[in-house]
Amino acid sequence: MGLLRKIRTTGRVAEPAPPRPEAEQPLAAGELRGSVQVRCVDAGSCNGCEIEIAAAFNPLYDAERYGARLVASPRHADVALVTGPVTRNMAEPLRRTVAAMGEPKLVVAVGDCAIDCGEFAGGYGVEGAVADVLPVDLAVPGCPPEPDQIVAALRRVTGR
């Protein structure tokens, strides 16, 4: 009963939807039309970006309302959300994960590390940025990026 009271008093916590991002939809995303399944790949991140991605799907930011959903298998996914600099051990798993996805597929690099290795550039275990391993369709800068920016990037993909 405590939970019932909590639900009643809390009501809706999702913030009003910000206006749709102006930027153009990536080419491959045109066929998805409002439904995007997302698979997260941590290629060597410090987990800061993972926390922000988790926040983007919480009730407050509610990325699910724009048609994005996290899934458990790359076979189900349209978008690979890659975080962190690509470490030597994760380069091959990352390639295989993206290879397992059916067309049309997109790779979204989340965070400064995924874009240009950030703090970890030149580290002995770092293979390179995500773009050195795979073609990247969309990048979300920030260290870590705010959930708002992740949601905006996902909205550019879903087109909602």
């Binding site: 009501g11 809706r12 916590v13 999702a14 009730p59 509610d62 699910e64 309302r65």
Partner: peptide
């Protein structure tokens, strides 16, 4: 989704 305070995907 509504019970969780979300807006929901429709």
């Amino acid at each position: 989704a509504r019970l969780e305070g979300r807006a929901g995907a429709g």
